[in-house]
Design a protein around this nucleic acid. Sequence first.
DNA 1: GCGTTACATATTTTT
DNA 2: TATGTAACGC
Length: 744
Amino acid sequence: MVQSSSAMPQDPFSHLNPQQRQAVTAGLGQVLVLAGPGSGKTRVLTERIAYLIRSLGVRPYGILAVTFTNKAAREMIGRLEKLLGEQVSDLWLGTFHATCARILRREANYLPFTSSFVIMDADDQEALVKRALKDLNLDDKLYRPAAMQAAISNAKNSLVLPKDVPTRNYRDEVIVRVYERYQELLLNSNAVDFDDLLMWAVRLLEDNPAVRERYARRFQHVLVDEFQDTNLAQYQLLGLLSTYHHNLFVVGDEDQSIYRWRGADYRNVLRFEEDFPEAQKILLEQNYRSTQNVLDAARAVIDRNPYRTPKSLFTERGQGEKIILYEAVDDHAEAAYVVDTIRLGLERNPKAGGDFAVMYRTNAQSRLLEEAFLRSGLPYRLVGAQRFYGRREVKDLIAFLRLVANPSDEISLNRVINVPPRGIGDKTLVALQLAARQANLSPGEVLLDLGRNGDRSPYWKAFGGRGAAMLADFGAMLSGWREAQAGELPLPALFDRVLSETVYQEYIEDGSEEGADRWENVQELRKLAYEYMERGLTAFLENLALVSDQDTLPEQVNAPTLLTLHAAKGLEFNQVFIIGLDEGLLPHSRSRDDPEEMAEERRLFYVGLTRARNQLYLVRARQRSTYGSSEYSEPSRFLEDIPDFLLSMQGIQYSSRWPARREAYQRWESTSQASLSRASEGERSRAAILEPRYRPAMRVRHPVWGEGMVLDSRVQDEDETVDVIFESVGFKRLMASLARLEII
DNA sequence: GCGTTACATATTTTT
DNA sequence: TATGTAACGC
């Protein structure tokens, strides 16, 4: 090991535990760090970079560090600056997408777009899919744009080109055609989508050995955060970038992989071990966040997932308080319980608002909480939900600006060509597209020509007089903005000019409160534009595309935080409430039929549990309203896995209604030592069910819903799934092991 | 071309 | 329940 100790008066790593230290000072080659929650993962990454620079003499220029979020990137840069001072400027540290965008802009001459390409966000992607469906004369009822987009996204994340999409049925063939058309539309617009950033980067490096060599030689060390969330494209990218020096240092935790639906594949951790058998593997198991009770509960839950590296987290913080399990009568009572409990806590310690977090599976669950907070007069902070950049007015303004930068951007053009309404309707729009296609230009270019040349434009006669005039007006406006931009009009001035010429304020401000809000959002965006005075329009647009709302949240408000379990990843709070612990919500009903999805729900719960430093509240409601109507629900199956002695039960009487609880302790005892991986989802303590007990047309009685008739029943995951029509509540799908149905 | 009403639809959302 | 989209009439 290298020791440049002459410069260091004492052991510079004395503040690290042995595993952390081993990771930070690991030698060359591939290194896999499996870091449990709260084990100091970010610290290890930043200390590792500092170590490379300070102790091994690696130039910052030769280091690439990638994260998933801008927030994580910012945090690492901040810590590095503290450790190293100004030396950090040369190193590349950013999100996967930002890093790829950077590479693609530099290497655009190898690619089918120019370096001023725009980046399409999720909304744009869906709009693009709709366009593709329309162009292909496909029914968007039959082929849902969202589903098509997901299929395309999946393909791209797995580096599958349209021609390579496997076609097992007609639907797949449709997907291929939509994917092809979608890709054409993107390139016509000189655009890439989020997934393309990764896919094009991989193709660039794969197809051009010289380019690959240049980057691979440059990056002596590649470091990756949240490795469990990588998709195939990202995995390949890392491989390509480290083909020369082979120094790939990845940090992650399979148990915290919660973005499967975005293409993330935690099995990349396993693949990494297979691809690099010589890789060093280091487990970080000391937790600096939670009490032992919290960790034990979390372990009891996560140990039931298969295909993972077993870990046993420990803490020096002591046993701590029991976990409080509360069952409310309904969802209103659930919210009231949470708010009351927080209020009591605040009475004791009024400054502790920021200690609390309330986590839930779906955003819809925040509504009742908000109402309860409002009623009690307590302030709160809501994460996510209404997204600034998703706001109509914000998207409109961005679309105008994107057109200035890139008139070929068809999605933006379609968005704002008639905003505010200026008499350009469907008919005119179709004519414009037709004229553009005939002239082999983009609609935006035709529009600009109309704007510049008016009735002398060769395209003028393609439209009815009124349509042509309207288009020319808008074209002239856009053309004027482009000239101003070329003449280096500062960004805020351009922004104002767009606002005034489109008469946007009058369009937005209708005297309503909502209108005032919208105008305020516009002002907010203008403020941001002001910050980009120096860097200019292109940098502004890139930032808008690659920075999420989560990054713009006001930090450090000393109030309880309301957020989804997904949004909670990476955060920690003294007191954590996880609400909605009911079958159908957590785990979500959408994951019922897929064991992989179910395992992910379990990880999601695990992430929530491990956010708590001191006190954990698990809350459920026996009855809750979904879309208007009220339904009864069973307790979440995950609750059964937490042993009784870690819990303190409150609310409605449990034990009589919930015999499964009693078995949890035994199960925990029997699996805790041999916690090892085998335990599969659905492996209950009772004997596995192999034959269905219920048959169609049988009459059954349920303790809550009364009598009903069995429609269907099948064995699944060693349990029985029964579909029943109840006289009281209609159709229900039940797990036989939980529902305690009685055959009449 | 635009505004109204009926109707379907409904997780999570790092970039 | 609430929201966004599609069809309809002006």
